[in-house]
């Protein structure tokens, strides 16, 4: 088991090198001079040239990249062009917000969608099934920004129950997590339903029934564990994506998360900041995937035996 974890953590290295390399080159290819951006339009060409040399912008790209990575490994991701503050500091200031939003939204989504998907499968073609799948259809088809705006309109403007933006109070997380959670609830419920439908047709479910177990305990003790693997995959992927910030929802609710930070940095061509965000996402995504793989093994002994 530990060997497996070690191997997977080790595999992070090429992933991060690949991702940063691509982003670094793309950012350098895009037009605009960082030195000019830092100094402003009024700066003299001499001053710009001086800063370029100081920043090493005239060196070959590969050297610039190596220099960046060398510093990054030591925890120095450079200064933001815009705020002039260390990138790591800025990101760590925002990251807790992103985690908070991700966790509340996903908890909400899982708590609602799991029972929804299971009951829909067990009572296939019933009214409940139709209702919950219609709800799920709404969830996947509604653009989150639009749903977010509707929530603001109704719950902030009309009823005044929750603030429409910011992250100051405990209440302010409610609307963004509902907006995000509803979207993810939909796909989790659909996945759970379809994998449950497949599992309850399996022979071992019939064997369990032939033992005299009631239908509900067959579902609980035998079907659920087997049906959970696709659901975990979907939840894991979504958490991974959300760790990279829910850009749209964060923007609609002015939520100070990493997603919004990255979009603003891309717009402002704040290369060190973009790089920092990307490294964070890539690492986060891979770690979540590792956790998902370990959960598979926890649930299914056939997968566990492959890890050792």
């Amino acid at each position: 088991m530990w060997k497996f974890i070690f191997k997977r953590v080790f595999a992070l290295i090429p992933v991060i090198i690949g991702v940063t390399l691509i982003v670094f080159f793309i950012m350098s290819l895009s037009p605009g001079d960082p030195a000019k951006m830092i100094l402003g339009d009024e700066a003299s060409p001499e001053a710009v040239q001086l800063l370029r040399q100081e920043m090493g912008l005239d060196d070959p790209l590969l050297i610039q990249y190596s220099r960046y990575m060398y510093n990054a490994i030591q925890g120095d991701m450079g200064l933001s062009y815009k705020s002039k503050k260390p990138v790591t500091e800025e990101i760590w200031a925002r990251f807790p917000n992103t985690i908070k939003l991700t966790l509340t939204a996903m908890t909400l989504a899982v708590i609602i969608s799991l029972p929804l998907g299971i009951i829909a499968a067990v009572r296939q073609n019933s009214f409940f099934d139709g209702f919950s799948m219609l709800l799920a259809l709404f969830g996947v088809s509604m653009p989150p920004f639009w749903f977010g705006l509707l929530l603001i309109l109704f719950f902030s403007l009309k009823l005044g129950w929750f603030p429409s933006s910011g992250s100051e109070s405990l209440k302010s997380i409610v609307l963004p997590s509902v907006a995000l959670g509803f979207l993810h609830m939909a796909s989790i419920a659909r996945t759970t339903r379809s994998s449950m439908l497949e599992v309850i047709r399996q022979d071992y479910i019939r064997t369990a029934r032939s033992k005299g177990l009631s239908y509900s305990s067959v579902i609980r003790k035998h079907a659920l564990k087997n049906a959970l693997i696709p659901t975990i995959t979907v939840v894991g992927l979504q958490v991974g994506v959300l760790l990279g910030g829910a850009v749209i929802v964060e923007t609609v609710f002015a939520w100070p998360g990493v997603g919004r930070l990255m979009v603003q940095s891309i717009m402002g061509r704040d290369i060190p900041m973009v790089m920092g965000c990307i490294i964070l996402f890539a690492t986060g995504f891979t770690i979540v995937n590792l956790i998902v793989d370990l959960l598979y093994g926890f649930i299914d002994p056939r997968i566990r035996s492959m890890y050792t």
Binding site: D203, T207, A208, R209, S210, K211, G212, S214, H222, I299
Partner: peptide
């Protein structure tokens, strides 16, 4: 439910799929 498994049991055709793989 009280009769199944107690008074009447059944052995199914395919042993490969009759057992729960995760238990």
């Amino acid at each position: 439910e009280k009769i199944r498994g107690k008074q009447v049991s059944m052995i199914f055709q395919d042993p490969m799929t009759s057992l729960n793989p995760v238990t």
